[in-house]
């Protein structure tokens, strides 16, 4: 089956697709296009990798003294 979407259409929905905000039909159409189009596939892989990098920045080693104070707080609950 050939993708009905143009590269421009896929690009306009790509981030929303990667955020799982597209509906099932749109998601399938984009899946199909990415399967067929190397250029859009590469773009999607780049954006996915960048999203993973940003998500990973959300985990930071807690400084030891902060951790101790917060653990002491919980013990008082």
């Amino acid at each position: 089956m050939k993708s009905k979407l143009s590269c421009e259409e896929v690009l306009s929905k790509l981030m929303s697709y990667l955020d799982h905000e597209e509906n099932a039909e749109s998601e399938s159409e984009i899946d199909l296009h990415l399967h067929e189009c190397r250029e859009c596939f590469s773009r999607a892989e780049f954006e996915k990798a960048l999203k993973r990098k940003v998500a990973a920045a959300g985990e930071v080693k807690t400084p030891e003294d902060t951790r101790k104070r917060l653990e002491a707080l919980i013990k008082r609950f």
Binding site: G58, E59, V60, K61, T62, R67, L70, E71, K75, F77
Partner: peptide, 21 residues
Amino acid sequence: QAFFTDGVTRLMDRLYGAAMR
């Protein structure tokens, strides 16, 4: 208390990371 402490301890670095951001 045990459930809460375990959960918070496990998630501490994520809580701290999000709070820092």
